[in-house]
Amino acid sequence: MRTRFLSDTAALLGRSLRHVLRSPDTIITTSVMPIAFMLLFVYVFGGAVAAGPGRYVDYLLPGILVITIASGVSYTAFRLFLDMASGIFGRFQSLPIARSSVLWAHVLTSVVANAVSLAVVVLVALLMGFRSGAGVAAWLGIAGLLLLLTFTLTWLAVLPGLSAKSADGASAFSYPLIFLPFVSSAFVPTRTMPGPVRAFAEHQPVTSIVDTIRALFAGRPVGDDIWTALAWCVGVLVIAYVLAMAAFRRKLA
């Protein structure tokens, strides 16, 4: 059964990756909005933001990477919804396959597509003057945290993909995710925010993730932020996975 799960997932992964390759606009759309935010904040607002010493683009990039993933995972919900609506989901489920491989293929496709989008965003940031003194271990840490966040948000996206009534509804779930970084330390330090907003910003997951990545890029010690970030990601991942699998089983009941 194990080998079957792997070979079925591989076959279905090949299918979804072809979808991504044949509509490269999904990667472009995923990268364009974060890049536009980056241009807007660096060249329009950046001069007026007191984010401390150093280049503002260095401060900004971690939050932009989180936004990139948040907008990228909405394609998972979208593709999954289209599979349900077109009936090909039913065809796959009537085949002698490991049934959950259909979901895993979509999740892994999201990981690959988001990795490409993130690379594009980082390249643009480099062109805009972003520089990092991070060593190999720090870069690996950043990549690992972004990978974990992609997994978490993608499993979260499976839920609307399975249960939405329309394609727009399936992708709309990502709007709050894209908005969340704005009320965090992603764009401006939290210290200037009024009390309740500051309390929310400092205790929501994006701040700990962004602060960890920022520290890794700058070569500073990450402190406790990394444990808070990991706890959020793993906790939400487990909940999202359990809910997604329950929704998946309900679809076949």
């Binding site: 090949g14 009936g87 039913g90 085949l95 002698p96 396959i97």
Partner: peptide, 22 residues
């Protein structure tokens, strides 16, 4: 409703199902 993958070619659709049927 014809449950075929529109983005794949006809042959790719058949190869996919053949792989899934092992």
């Amino acid at each position: 409703f014809a449950a075929v993958d529109e983005i794949l070619t006809g042959r790719e659709n058949l190869v996919l199902i053949a792989r899934l049927r092992h």
